[in-house]
């Protein structure tokens, strides 16, 4: 009872904040805030797959693009037919519906990718998911209905502070509760020792696929938020580097630590912006060099990430 009050309070605080910051919605710092939120959704959802379940997926950007394209295509079509709908109070439920549909589309894709993961382990799974992300990108490049290489444009901008952080709270809440449920302990068991887990009666197949499906669902929602904020989506945005950016958030924060992912997502979003002046001077992308070095050094010195699988808050307080 006490715990649900905490989540609701966070939700309320998020909407109060929303009305305060609304006036600054095109300022630079607001933008960083918003990206940090989208990155939290991505990192926490990928953590469920890579960290908690130990299935190393490198195709998160692929799921993100499916969700983004589906939900943005829907609202763009609707917007072209009846723009009036987006003026009134109906715009929020419409956007929420589109986001959920995008999430479901991504979840279906997650199911399809999850299936081969029944037979593949470790490196093979990593490269198959990477390949899957690339296939999605190539297909999107070739589908004219969503603009092909030019991208999907004219998406109405419905993403706001409140919407993004509502998604953040919902994602964190769901993942947090999943990890602490019987199903979540099954996921952890699969990560630690698959054979032992199945000997103890864990349905490893179901666990792995469900982790993929849930992770993909939230990635799809993040894609929708991202697309509607930018008002344009191009397949090139969702290349391997995007997946990699999310992976490093999970690895840096600690595989299996939700609060670690959140902190890492915020930290990396800020780092990226902080490096921008340097990048403007040198015309070079130092970010990826720093990311990759960070990854190597982290694996050599602190392979469990900054937080390991610990959390910032005690379990009792938010159980």
């Amino acid at each position: 009872m006490k715990s649900s009050a905490g989540w609701l309070a966070a939700l309320a605080a998020c909407w109060v904040m929303h009305f305060f910051v609304q006036d600054y919605s095109r300022s630079y710092y607001f933008l960083i805030f918003l990206y940090a939120g989208i990155n939290i959704v991505l990192a926490v959802s990928l953590n469920l797959v890579n960290g908690v379940t130990g299935q190393f997926s490198m195709g998160h950007a692929g799921f993100m693009s499916i969700g983004g394209y589906v939900s943005c295509y829907l609202i763009t079509q609707l917007f072209q037919r009846s723009p009036a709908l987006f003026e009134g109070p109906l715009s929020m439920p419409i956007f929420a519906g589109a986001l959920v549909l995008g999430g479901i589309a991504a979840a279906i894709a997650g199911y399809l990718v999850g299936l081969p993961s029944l037979r593949l382990k470790g490196d093979y799974l990593a490269i198959v998911t990477l390949g899957f992300g690339e296939i999605i990108r190539v297909i999107l490049l070739n589908v004219d209905a969503v603009g092909g290489a030019r991208g999907l444009g004219g998406i109405p901008n419905l993403t706001s502070f409140g919407v993004v952080y509502t998604c953040v709270i919902v994602t964190v809440f769901c993942v947090w509760r999943i990890i602490r449920s019987a199903q979540g302990r099954a996921l952890l068991a699969v990560r630690e020792d698959e054979i032992a887990a199945s000997a103890m009666g864990v349905n490893t197949t179901r666990s792995k696929v469900s982790a993929f499906v849930i992770g993909a669902f939230f990635a799809g929602i993040a894609g929708g938020l991202f697309g509607s904020w930018l008002t344009v989506l191009t397949p090139q945005t969702f290349d391997f580097n995007k997946s990699f950016e999310i992976i490093i958030m999970v690895v840096l924060g600690g595989m299996g630590s939700v609060s670690g992912s959140i902190v890492a997502a915020i930290f990396l979003t800020i780092i990226r912006e902080a490096l921008r002046p340097l990048q403007d001077i040198t015309k070079l992308d130092f970010r990826m060099i720093i990311y990759s070095l960070m990854l190597i050094v982290l694996m050599l010195t602190k392979p469990r990430g900054l937080f390991g699988s610990r959390e910032l808050v005690k379990e009792k307080e938010l159980a």
Binding site: G54, F56, M58, G122, D123, A126, F244, I247, V251, M255, L284, D285, F286, M288, I289, Y291, S292, L293, M294, L295, I296, M299, L300, P303
Partner: peptide
Amino acid sequence: LRRAPRINVLITAVGVSLFLEFAGQL
């Protein structure tokens, strides 16, 4: 990392690959 879990070696390999690519660009 010879005795580390496989997933750590995999992450390192990805890191080395990206490092070479982007240091190459630099």
